[in-house]
Write a protein that binds this DNA or RNA. Sequence first.
DNA 1: CCAGTGGGTTGGAAAACTGGACTCACTGTA
DNA 2: TACAGTGAGTCCAGTTTTCCAACCCACTGG
Lengths: 150, 150
Amino acid sequence: MTAARPCSIADALSVVGEKYSLLVLREVFLGVRRFDAMVRAVGVPRDVLAARLRHLIEAGVLEKVPYSERPPRYEYRPTEAGLELRGVLQLLQRWGDRHLADRPPVVFEHSCGEVLDPVVTCRSCERPVAPDDVRVRSAIPEWDAAGARP
Amino acid sequence: MTAARPCSIADALSVVGEKYSLLVLREVFLGVRRFDAMVRAVGVPRDVLAARLRHLIEAGVLEKVPYSERPPRYEYRPTEAGLELRGVLQLLQRWGDRHLADRPPVVFEHSCGEVLDPVVTCRSCERPVAPDDVRVRSAIPEWDAAGARP
DNA sequence: CCAGTGGGTTGGAAAACTGGACTCACTGTA
DNA sequence: TACAGTGAGTCCAGTTTTCCAACCCACTGG
């Protein structure tokens, strides 16, 4: 990779962008927190899962909590930072449901009692953010849209 | 992959979960829509970019639009479906800014005039969706949280 | 004692990624 | 006319990752 645009999206993806990482997180949010159960639910090779869990723990997204001393057994729980990724999964799911699925989606219910239909809104004005409702304010000058490199 | 949980998140990731795909989308949203500019901004190998663009077009996320006849030149634009992925990137960026970045983030401005701080809300009640504000309503029975497989 | 479970590690083949060189079709400059 | 440059790729050899099955260890329950 030769000097790409510096960007927190890229940084975030270096944590959760590897294959299976977000699916592991999905399982954690669904309550599946043990190694073997994850292997089955995600369909991930065991060695890859072990690597992903290590990486996610190291990045502070999950934590490994013992639930049995003898034999030593652990479960994987989301940290505060991990929980904040839930919105990403909710949006991905909505997108998949709308544009790809040909199958009854898994439906989530919000605490308000209705089926959850997640929308991104602006914290300030509390209105939905439409796709073209945003402008770049403080970009790094050399990395403007022209794609020119310093 | 041996029979994983059926899920639109996984489906969505099979479209945008490959390495670089979301970064290509980031560029498209920033207005970088041509091959060479993407190579520079994303830092992706040229053949990989070519493959990703093909895949994203095929999946209906981008479209290839000619902007010059002679010589033939194309640019890549988001479709309606593609635009709907913008929220995912906004949340990933927010997450990266909060948890990883040690660098001044690229700031976006919402059309309301304030700096964009994206929050996921429930379309019905219009209130923010907290990490544990949701319950599964209609899961596929065999794929409950226990992770047992049929 | 024996099968089963949870949580891994190991090894080799297959697939994906990497960086660079190369092509082709033009354009703009001298 | 020649020549450098650009845009959009393709091709290739070498390196990493992934994949998958098999194996290991510690323990439990019958």
